[in-house]
Design a protein around this nucleic acid. Structure first.
Ligand SMILES: [Mn+2]
Ligand SMILES: [Mn+2]
Ligand SMILES: [Zn+2]
Ligand SMILES: [Zn+2]
Lengths: 126, 126
DNA sequence: ACCTTATTGAGAAGTCTTTTCAATAACGCT
DNA sequence: AGCGTTATTGAAAAGACTTCTCAATAAGGT
């Protein structure tokens, strides 16, 4: 059975305090800076579990690094993210969903999933 | 000045023969299998250069690996790709471009770029 | 042919992530 | 509260992908 540990709680807290998407390493660094002695491996494990349970969103940065965020929206949605500070806006995109489905159907692709994210500079970082 | 080498030509040839998107490592493996003694580093260098010159498209797989393809379309476009065999369909997405711009503007984001790719199983792999 | 220097091959190194395994601690039970 | 089971942890090793280093090679202009 799944156990509730201090470490997992700390990861949740730290992730919630983060402004936007953060990497596992950045999160671990900030936790360490705050006095925690949690290991990097445990941060990775916690984030991976949370993503699997749907409590946390993840996406690949343009550099191929996994970033994580405790999103407020529950359902499927997309992101507009500042590539400088990580600030993130959650956006619904019904037209995208339709478009994606239509394209897949048109070319007889099944079991489809789409990656749709927008990266830019927020007004503060611009 | 840029020099034309046998190795670069071989990479172009191998990439063109590939059905869809392939990783640098897969491409190198297939070239090696075909008798070439080109080094992996050179394959990476060639692909990186070609992407920079706009002759080759690249995208991040869902696992975070860089994949490459010699696309037929010149301009900006997106991809519907089989996650099993790499087979790829190039798709225009005017509505997506508009939508992307609109979202960025609405939230005062500048210097935006979007990642829009659809992954699934092609009819053969399904 | 010769010279200059961009390019190559081979391996080392870098970065992100997962795995291993012995030690620890969460939680159900008494 | 005490106990036993076993999920979880920390630390280090390993794995995967990519880039870098540097001496040797070869492209291409003269
Ligand atoms: Mn989200
Ligand atoms: Mn393309
Ligand atoms: Zn910003
Ligand atoms: Zn396929």
């Amino acid at each position: 059975m799944k156990r509730q540990t201090k470490q997992r709680d700390l990861v949740v807290t730290a992730l919630t305090k983060a402004r936007g998407f953060v990497s596992a390493q950045a999160l671990h660094a900030s936790m360490t800076h705050s006095g925690s002695t949690i290991s990097l491996a445990t941060v990775y494990r916690a984030l991976t579990d949370m993503v699997g349970e749907g409590d946390v969103d993840s996406l690949l940065s343009l550099e191929g690094e996994n970033l994580y965020r405790a999103c407020s929206s529950n359902g499927h949605h997309h992101h507009l993210m500042c590539r400088e500070c990580g600030a993130t806006v959650e956006i619904d995109a019904k037209p995208i969903e339709e478009w994606s489905r239509a394209q897949a159907a048109a070319y007889n692709f099944t079991d489809v999933e789409h990656v749709v994210d927008i990266f830019g500079l927020c007004s503060q970082c611009a």
